[in-house]
Structure formats: structure tokens, C-alpha cells
Design a protein around this nucleic acid. Sequence first.
DNA 1: CTTTGTGCAAACGATTTGCAGGATG
DNA 2: CATCCTGCAAATCGTTTGCACAAAG
Lengths: 138, 138
Amino acid sequence: MQQQADEIIKTLKSKGLRVTPQRFAVYANLLGREDHPTVEQILTDLNKDAPTSSQATVYAALQALREVGLVREVLLEEGVSRYDAKVAPHHHFRCNCCGAIEDIEWNTFGKIDLAQLRSGLTAERFEVIVQGVCDRCE
Amino acid sequence: MQQQADEIIKTLKSKGLRVTPQRFAVYANLLGREDHPTVEQILTDLNKDAPTSSQATVYAALQALREVGLVREVLLEEGVSRYDAKVAPHHHFRCNCCGAIEDIEWNTFGKIDLAQLRSGLTAERFEVIVQGVCDRCE
DNA sequence: CTTTGTGCAAACGATTTGCAGGATG
DNA sequence: CATCCTGCAAATCGTTTGCACAAAG
């Protein structure tokens, strides 16, 4: 635990970010969960026991973390942004029923060849988004 | 032109939608463009010459069209929903520079095999989203 | 001490909603 | 003529911003 905390602090510093309790908490929270929470979910979680962060601060922290590449925004739903501390490329599955979002390993679909892309388009990144139904919703 | 109009009217009726001038205009507008406009863009276009539709009506029309499967919502950006009358499956390219969105043909990437998806997940649809830079932005 | 972050509340922009009048089938 | 749509304005919801105070390096 303590070791992980030191790790996080080191990571933040290495990116040139000031280490504040709130920023630390946001990043640690994201690292510790598998789902892809919204700002509201993060905020609720952080303030579960005692109030530690305000809404605007969470937004600011997420933006800072995003700018240095420690966190990615995930767009799978209308209206809300979700956040993900797993920055390595991967795909996403979204359950149309319960709204749950699940990661899909990068190599799941075999090789996806971008070479056939229209000439003129330069790809920087891509991902597959799968929609369907998960186990819990049968 | 007239023939196309009849076609649109027939389509709307066949889906059980009442044919109103506004609903017709929204759908015809979407059918006639290649980009993936936002509500604001549709509204501006419809009211270019003379005011024909209000904002709330465009939202309502899009929702009705979406419910019967004539129109799809496209989520590629934070903050705004875009709409697409091309409901056949296809992928999307988004230019990180100018924000332009372009369709990618369904078979561009060869066969994408969903069989390796975690058992428990039932896929209903999927698409590849590519981000990069387009010609105009070099 | 200088710079940057935090918290609050107000501002904002996209979307939705309530309701009265109007058009559709 | 019953039902559903339209338009307006107000309401909502996620996100951003301005500013005074506090904390980090």
C-alpha cells in the first residue's frame, strides 16, 4: 500500500505534476478500479467517508492527468465522459442493457490491418467498440 | 427530386411515423449529406433560407427517427451528438485536427473475428473508430 | 516566496421537458 | 375528432470558469 502510494507520487512528479492530496486521490482511485467511472462516480467514491475533494477539482485533476498521458477519456455513451487509467491500447465492450463497460484485450480480434485506409488519412490510434449484452443481463 | 420525396414519405409511413414537414426535412437533410452533422448544424441548414423548424422539434424528430432505426447517433466527440442516416454498418475516421468525420467501408479491415470475445458477452454490433489526421490538415 | 491547485458558486452549452395551440391520419 | 407534433420558454445536467484563499516546491 505504502509502496504503491510512493509509486503513484513518483509517477505524478515524473510528469511534472504537483502532488496534491486530491490529485493523488483521483489517480489512485482510477488505478484501483476496473470499471470506467464518470466524474460523479469518482467524486462519490472519494467523498464516501469524509469529504476530500470538490467537483471542480476532480475535473481539473482529470484534465491534468489527461494532458500528461496518465489517464484517457472514454466516449461510449451520450452525455457523460468516463475515465480510464489504463492507457495502453485496448478495445471496449459496452452492455446495452446495464451500461457496464469492459475492457477487451488488444489482440482479441487478431490483426486489424489499417493499410487499406483511404490514402490521405493518417491513423494515429484506433479501437474497436463492441455493443451487446453481458452475462448479468440475460 | 419529387420521386425521392415520395420515397422518403413512404419510408416514414412504413415505420409508423406521421409525416410532418419538419420530420421530413430533418430526414431528407440527413440523407442528403455525407458528414455527420450535429443538431445545431442540421438546424442551421434547415433554417438557412426561411425558418422551418425549431430546435426542440429537431431533437424530437431525431429521436423518433432513431427509435424506428432510420437514423443512428454517432459518438466520436465529447459534448455533442452527431447523426447519421446511413444505418448499414460501417466504421468511422475522425480527424484530430479539424474534427472532420469520414465513413470507412465495412470491409476495409478484412475479417474481424468476434469469436474470441470473452464467453458471457453477446455482441450485437461493433465498429472500428480510427483517429488521426486527414489530408486537409497536413 | 512564487507558482499552481482548491473550493465555491455562478456561468455555459447541449439536451429535455411542460404546456398550449396546431396539424396529421 | 382523437392523437400526436410543434414551438416556445423554462428546466436539467454535465462541464467550465472566475476568483479568493491555501498549499506545494
